[in-house]
Design a protein around this nucleic acid. Structure first.
Lengths: 141, 141
DNA sequence: GCTTGCTCCTCTAGCGACTAGAGGATGTAG
DNA sequence: CTACATCCTCTAGTCGCTAGAGGAGCAAGC
């Protein structure tokens, strides 16, 4: 990984698009980097790590506010464990909830794919299984 | 399930909020229902099933356009279900990918919680694991 | 030096899929 | 007959980007 990168290179390295990087700066997720004489952003290795972190967390479905919390932890590594622990536990609960929900959805999707292509949509279980009233009506979020 | 329902009752039955039901009508996902003398929407059992279908599909992560396709297939039941099946398969792949990712994160979060009481967050691997370059950089969407 | 073409800058506007609120009409219970 | 819930339409806001306009700067070839 290089020591300094312009925004385009940072985008290439981290997989976060340049406009999104600027957006993250705007909303305060990424600190404003130093600029060159020509007013161009210059990212350090640390910035790139932070960006990679944000990207992976976003891919996992964490909201920006949750990521902000995790980054705050990262920025203050000597914080008392009590607080860190509480935040981690909250995130873990969220992750477990997501896994449970996704696992249920996976089962449903697997059943839906049992359609074998004989005789058209009437025998296709994709639609049937989604319209099925026997599915729970409880809140999931 | 009752034969006719006002929008509030439809919301209660299907779990889709009233403004969202109107929104679905607006974007053409739900056909405009008949109105009473006082201009109030009146939903049939069939509308409620369609709404339940939409809700389930949204919860499964289907985009509105994908749902529109599924509903079109449903409305023309003699079409082959290859398309619907393909959509479901794509969803299943994504769901499995997310489960795998979240499971990995869950392990790291568990470790983080397990490390409490010994010198703070520095020993925790959550942030490290999310910033880890060894994670793939390929497109996910 | 000069031109070509890429990258970068800021700014505003748009997207999907809702959600919230204003302001007003109607339906129902005591 | 008066509350109060429910409904109506409408506009505007939310989140997390994404696209485009319009302009400046840099590196490389001639």
């Amino acid at each position: 990984m290089k020591k300094h990168a312009a925004i385009g290179e940072a985008a290439r390295i981290t997989g976060v698009k340049a406009p999104t990087i600027r957006y993250y700066e705007q909303i305060g997720l990424l600190p404003p980097p130093p600029r060159t004489d020509a007013n161009r952003r210059h990212y350090s290795t640390n910035d790139l790590r932070r960006l990679s972190f944000i990207r992976h967390a976003r891919e996992l479905g964490f909201e920006v506010e949750a990521i902000r919390t995790l980054l705050t932890l990262q920025d203050a590594p000597d914080q008392p464990c009590k607080e860190a622990d509480a935040i981690a536990r909250a995130r873990l609960a969220e992750v477990e909830h997501r896994i449970a929900r996704l696992t249920a959805l996976k089962v449903e999707l697997s059943h839906m794919i049992a359609c074998d292509g004989h005789g058209g949509i009437r025998q296709c279980r994709v639609i049937e299984s989604l319209a099925d009233e026997s599915h729970d009506h409880g809140r999931l979020d």
